[in-house]
Simulated assay, not measured.
Amino acid sequence: MTSNQSSTYYNREAFDMTIHPLEVVHALEICGWSYEAPYDCYNWPSWEQMKKDGIEFGDPVLRASQYAAVLNNRLELIGFAQFFPITGVTRLGLGLRPDLCSRGLGPAFTGLIVSEALRRAPQNEIDLEVLAWNTRAIRAYQQAGFRITDTYSRSTAAGFAECHCMVYESSAS
């Protein structure tokens, strides 16, 4: 299959994405994903470690209230979303399965997550943070209607890093 055919295949799949509750089976799968460098900073700890520490979707209450699975038409996990509530804002966290990155899915994947955020809290502004070096993600978010509104350094697992805050603008989509 050529890269154009592969991209077309994944774009077709994009129209069949749906949001579902993030179940333990999904969390276990996400913890097994392995991104290649430099994206390996997005790898999660083991599921056992996340449960033990009660962090992120390892906490059952947080998983149920803030996380969702994105499944394709065959009900395979292709990504996840976090809908983090801040007063007047829904901050998105999202991740696409590593083998689906750079296949043209990003804008549709992000758009589906934005639609869900609007359904959950239509009055809220929607934003996200992205590492400034991650041009692949920035491009997908821009195509989905986000624009960079701020740049700052913040603490990450690997130390301080420059990040962009990107805000969704419905007129841009």
Rank of each mutant, 00 (worst) to 15 (best):
A64P: 01
R147A: 09
M17E: 04
A157W: 11
E162H: 01
E56Q: 09
H164G: 01
T87G: 02
I113C: 01
D59F: 07
G58A: 01
N4V: 06
Y67F: 14
K52Q: 10
A14E: 08
S7V: 10
E169S: 13
A81E: 05
L131R: 00
G106R: 13
S173W: 11
V130W: 03
G95Y: 13
M166L: 13
S102G: 06
L94S: 14
Y35K: 01
A121Q: 07
S155T: 03
S115T: 08
G159P: 08
R154P: 04
T8N: 11
A14C: 10
Q123A: 12
Y42S: 05
N124A: 12
S6I: 12
T18N: 10
I55V: 15
F83D: 04
Y35C: 09
V61Y: 00
I138F: 02
I86G: 00
A132D: 07
H20G: 04
R136F: 03
D40G: 07
T2K: 05
N43C: 09
S171I: 11
L62V: 15
D59S: 06
S170F: 03
A158D: 10
N11V: 13
F83W: 03
I138D: 00
A157R: 10
A158M: 11
C101D: 02
A14Y: 14
L77K: 02
Y10R: 06
L118T: 08
R74D: 13
L118N: 08
I138C: 12
Y67S: 08
N134F: 05
L105Q: 12
D150Y: 14
F83H: 05
G106N: 13
H164I: 04
R74M: 14
S155A: 11
Q123C: 07
G79A: 03
E29C: 04
F160K: 06
P21G: 01
N72R: 05
G93T: 12
Q142T: 01
A37L: 11
E23T: 12
I113D: 07
P60W: 01
A132W: 07
W133P: 02
Y42T: 00
V25D: 10
I126R: 01
I138E: 03
E13L: 15
R97Y: 06
A81H: 06
Y35I: 00
H26K: 02
T135L: 12
A68T: 02
A68K: 05
R97E: 10
A14G: 15
C163G: 07
L131S: 00
P85M: 00
